[in-house]
Design a protein around this nucleic acid. Structure first.
Lengths: 354, 354
DNA sequence: CTGAAAGCGCTTACAG
DNA sequence: CTGAAAGCGCTTACAG
């Protein structure tokens, strides 16, 4: 490719210049170890003099590889996915592969298109974060015959490697953090009624487990539904809960956007955070360290998820035929306590770079 | 590529099955018009029966194209760039090309690497948004011999197509909006002392032009420096300005993150927005429609920028040799007035999807 | 440690 | 409207 632009310097030109065969040039370019030092130098000088670059299309054609992996996410406009993409790109870079991002908009039809789409012909495999698919779509996933790693927990036991957050445990720990501060009337924002798979159901389960372990009764009135996990819905739900006058002393937003929306409403109503109501989020997006007050949240191991997903995918790509069992990896998490739960006792944040 | 996975169905197989030559298969696959309907049908059935997919690497090798374009941005973690990437991906999709994102972290060295990097061998061209490069780097850009479109205004008159926001005029309009509301002590957050290129300098210029046009004296004390355009720096600068007791009745954040940081400080100090101080941002990132109060800002024509950049780049790619003059396109903008300047009179936001 | 040669799967003048 | 054939630039057994 791109030969027109660079003047079509090929391995043959380099070989001629260096006085060797193209095989030797190929060996040098690909770091094959057993080459006489003088030969290597000759080749490297020729490469430098001619400004040679390997032609990636030709290499790919020969190797049956592209060196590209796909990443399908709902939207880059959602901070969590923008940051996840950031992490995946970095992890892939460290392993010498490049990432192609596809946006599905959380639309089921588009999420399915990704599986059949032509774009997968560009890539050796796919890291796939569906939000609209459900257990019913397992068959479609089973029909996929190329390397794939699933992110998230919508389709468990599916025929693919799987990397997920520790949703139940992390939510339990987040709730425990609030309980440890003496809070007993802990509202939840972001529940999805009737859902059994997915982050909402799992995080709510963790919340309930923590209450139970501490002998705090579960009050359904404290559970705020919110379909979309955006700031706006977080704000609406928070307002609704406050209006209901439930004696709330803490709020657990099932993601950071919801918690940030709640925070804004609390600010607007002059409710002291955390004095009157402590607030907890989930995801640890960058913004949480900069909000006022800074938001306590769960760090879900985003970098680890990204790294693990890339590694699993590359392993599949490297052994296309292998009958390796499908792996399920759960990332480590940690509770990040900031001002929205600890108040002035919160540890000072590191100054942002610069 | 990927032949192992799909069972290596090639054009030859399709041709044999359909009883035609591979040239004919190629013609059908590529939509060449003059093919007898019956022939086309035979070929299409054969393709369907065999599950044939064109091998992209082979096609690219032959065509000297990859169908991929690069997009180099500072970081996807910064909402403006995440949303820009979103728009570029959509615009490229509409034109049948795929986007490869590179992150430079605003580090000059990495921004230069993008120009020489091996990754450009994957792509037919580059949409490039440098933040750390300056006029001194024009020579490096001139040496680039592949299709490129620059975003932003760090390097004017450089040897490349250029798409930019209407920084001066848009900042003037934003300031005028505040002046029209009767504000006279308008602080600025995000100035870069000594800078002559770049968004900070241009937006500050627009601010000054608006003041002058309205006979309002320019007061350097109202200009708040903020190197990084993040929430945190916006908050710090806002606090500093308030502490100086300057009689401020409005704040113009040179981007939304700065304005949002300022908003948080104003909230915390119980300053009524916009009653006491009106706040204006720049960029119209999604978050501004959801903050409380919602943030008035400048819509900089992000979709238009994305579309124009993709179009200019594809035009260059299509005519590698053409001596077409370098184009400079300035996007349309609009002032989006929301609660942070209009208060309760702000038009209701459309309900977020869902 | 290196060479000569086949072939990856396409597209495209060149004929007809 | 279609076919036979060259060749895009590489990698890799196969020899030596």
């Amino acid at each position: 490719m791109n030969g027109r632009r660079t003047g079509t310097v090929t391995m043959h030109d380099v070989a001629a210049r260096a006085g060797v065969s193209i095989k030797t040039v190929s060996n040098v370019v690909n770091g094959y170890p057993y080459i006489r030092a003088t030969t290597r130098e000759k080749v490297e000088s020729a490469i430098a003099e001619l400004g040679y670059h390997v032609n990636v299309s030709a290499r790919n054609l020969r190797r049956g590889r592209t060196g590209l992996i796909g990443l399908a996410v709902p939207e880059l406009s959602l901070p969590y996915f923008a940051e996840l993409a950031d992490s995946v790109i970095r992890a892939a870079e460290a392993r010498g592969v490049t990432v192609l991002i596809e946006q599905t908009g959380s639309v089921r039809e588009r999420e399915l298109e990704v599986l059949a789409g032509q774009r997968r012909m560009f890539t050796d495999g796919l890291i796939y974060s569906p939000l609209a698919l459900g257990p019913d779509d397992v068959d479609r996933l089973a029909a996929v015959d190329y390397p794939m790693v699933l992110l998230g927990e919508r389709i468990f036991g599916g025929p693919a490697d799987h990397v997920t957050m520790s949703n139940v445990e992390a939510a339990r720990a987040a709730t425990q953090h609030l309980l440890d501060l003496g809070r007993r009337r802990i509202a939840v924002i972001g529940a999805h009624a009737g859902e059994t798979v997915g982050s909402a159901a799992l995080r709510l389960q963790g919340y309930r487990e923590a209450l139970e372990a501490n002998g705090v009764p579960f009050d359904p009135a404290l559970v705020g539904e919110a379909g979309l996990w955006h700031r706006a819905t977080g704000a609406e739900t928070m307002a609704r809960l406050l209006d209901a006058d439930l004696g709330i002393d803490a709020v657990f937003g099932l993601n950071d956007a919801l918690a940030l929306g709640a925070l804004h409403v609390l600010h607007a109503r002059r409710v002291d955070v955390p004095g009157q109501i402590a607030v907890m989020g989930f995801d640890d997006i960058d913004e949480t360290a900069y909000s006022s007050p800074t938001l306590s949240t769960v760090h879900p191991g985003r970098e680890q998820i990204a790294r693990t997903a890339v590694d699993l995918l590359l392993a599949r790509i490297d052994e296309p035929g292998a009958d390796r069992p499908y792996q399920q990896v759960v990332a480590d998490f940690s509770v990040v306590a900031r001002e929205s739960t600890l108040g002035d006792q919160a540890p000072a944040e590191p100054t942002p770079a610069g």
